[in-house]
């Protein structure tokens, strides 16, 4: 798919978060967060530590329970269903597992299955969740691993791979399930500088296929270059939600401006 093809697709929301509220005990982490991701968009979520950006991603993925609000992915209300009298009940674990097929997730710590080789990691879901025939699952897994540049490493166990290679396997594993939205939770934070570039390159490659993506990151370069939208979070709320170019050139929220000044300033000093 080329850039002009993507531009031709009319913007329609693939993911909608409405008034999401989440707290641990009396500490509220998300204080009513709303945002929309359009089909094919790449949204980078920025913010200081403790701003709630990872929690937002985990709520979208239904890995965390939230006390209020809704997440709709590809037209489907996630995790809950309407009951009589305007109340909602939580779906069963099995129903949520099925809904999670719409979202793929890449974790900060890779979380590859350590007792399986790279190719087994990638084919595990298609084989045992989607019931794809083994030969076909393996063929597709090999294709994906080659696509992320790991054709040579298919039969290596995670412990035999570098952090960056593990993260690329993890991206292939998520893509193998053909999700509607890819969620990245600080995918390069646990990597050495050399690996960071190669993982970001693969993420750009994923974005170029027209995949809708939400990326929680500290990589300003990536956000500036690849993101179509930037969401800046501060103390559990979205302080600014703007097109990428606008956010980096003229952030409207003072906290966002401070954040940009400190992170980009630090970057400029080290360079």
């Amino acid at each position: 798919m080329t850039a002009t093809d993507i531009a031709a697709i009319p913007a329609s929301p693939i993911l909608e978060v409405r008034n999401l509220r989440k707290s641990y005990g009396s500490t509220s982490i998300l204080k009513g967060v709303s945002c929309t991701l359009n089909q094919g968009d790449v949204m980078c979520v920025l913010g200081g530590s403790g701003s709630g950006k990872t929690t937002l991603l985990r709520c979208i993925a239904q890995l965390e329970r939230y006390q209020g609000g809704s997440v709709v992915v590809d037209g489907e209300l996630m995790g809950i269903a309407a009951a009589k009298g305007g109340r909602f009940y939580r779906l069963s674990e099995r129903q949520i597992a099925r809904q999670r097929l719409k979202t793929g997730m890449v974790f900060q710590k890779f979380n590859l299955f350590s007792h399986m080789t790279a190719v087994q990691n990638v084919m595990e879901g298609p084989l045992h969740v989607l019931s794809v025939p083994p030969a076909e699952a393996r063929r597709e897994a090999c294709r994906l691993l080659e696509w992320v540049g790991l054709g040579e490493r298919m039969d290596h166990y995670p412990a035999q791979l570098s952090g960056g290679q593990q993260q690329r396997v993890a991206i292939a594993r998520a893509l193998a399930m053909k999700p509607k939205v890819m969620l990245f939770d600080e995918p390069t934070s646990a990597l050495d500088p050399e690996s960071v570039g190669r993982v970001l390159a693969v993420m750009k490659q994923v974005a170029a296929t027209g995949m809708s993506m939400i990326v929680v990151t500290h990589e300003m370069g990536f956000a500036r270059e690849v993101a179509s939208r930037v969401v800046f979070m501060d103390h559990g709320v979205i302080a600014e939600d703007a097109p990428s170019a606008q956010f980096f050139s003229a952030p409207s929220h003072p906290r966002a401006a401070d954040f940009l000044a400190s992170t980009l300033g630090a970057r400029a000093q080290t360079n």
Partner: peptide, 23 residues
């Protein structure tokens, strides 16, 4: 077993029992 392994199972659509058995 690290909790991340279970979360990775969840994100490829596994149920709790399948995650237990396979991972």
């Amino acid at each position: 077993v690290d909790r991340g392994q279970y979360e990775a199972c969840c994100m490829i659509g596994m149920t709790r029992l399948l995650a237990l058995r396979r991972v």
